[in-house]
């Protein structure tokens, strides 16, 4: 079953095209790693897939409410405890097992600490635990391993593997080798050509 089909996608950041002509598909149980140099538009592409910004061209086909998105900001409230933070997102996403997610990311001992007291890596783990309670088939992850130590990266990779085994899919922008059985898509060849960068949304082609 295809969870995500992207065809001839072009995205723009700050009114300029970054990548164009990107096509790929993700079936249940598959993961795809996005690579490419800084500024190529990995984040922008992921935001487009998550539905946060409209693509400039091309099609993104998937079911409604299929995406769980995680980026640099974890959406945590410092004044709430670890459990409260996670329970909130579980309620919003109509979801899952809070205690299980806490255990999976090894946060059990911290469950009643306010999130403000966590270290950067612990916050990251909490942010990733949110994916498990969101119960969405398609994970869209932007540099998920930032500030994680080796043990936590392994734990996270196991979590992704579990998600894939349950019929989910993951689209991940990362430079770390997660040890996943995943396809790799290098965005470098899709960098927008110079003559098309300047036409973000149909304004300037009239001048061309």
């Amino acid at each position: 079953m295809t969870l995500l089909a992207v065809q001839d996608l072009a995205v723009a950041r700050g009114g300029l095209r970054t990548v164009e002509g990107v096509s790929f598909a993700l079936d249940a149980g598959q993961a795809l790693i996005l690579r490419g140099p800084n500024g190529i538009g990995k984040t922008t592409l992921l935001r487009a897939v998550a539905g946060l910004q409209p693509p400039v061209a091309g099609r993104i086909e998937m079911a409604d409410d299929a995406v769980a998105y995680a980026a640099h900001a974890d959406g945590l409230k410092g004044a709430l405890t670890v459990t409260e933070n996670l329970a909130f997102w579980a309620q919003i996403f109509g979801g899952g097992d809070v205690a299980g997610a806490i255990a999976a990311m090894d946060l059990t001992g911290l469950a009643h600490r306010p999130a403000a007291a966590l270290s950067a890596g612990q916050k990251r783990r909490l942010g990733l635990a949110r994916l498990m309670v969101a119960r969405r088939p398609l994970w869209v992850l932007d540099e998920p391993t930032v500030s994680l130590d080796a043990a936590s990266v392994a734990r996270f990779a196991a979590m992704v593997r579990g998600h894939l085994a349950q019929g989910g899919a993951a689209l991940i922008a990362t430079h770390i080798d997660l040890g996943l059985d995943a396809g790799v898509l290098d965005l470098t060849p899709y960098r927008a050509r110079a003559d098309s960068t300047a036409r973000p949304a149909g304004f300037n082609e009239a001048f061309a």
Partner: peptide, 11 residues
């Protein structure tokens, strides 16, 4: 138009 041209030049 000017902003677009400058951006193109930088690319």
């Amino acid at each position: 138009r000017l902003a677009a041209l400058q951006a193109r030049e930088m690319r």
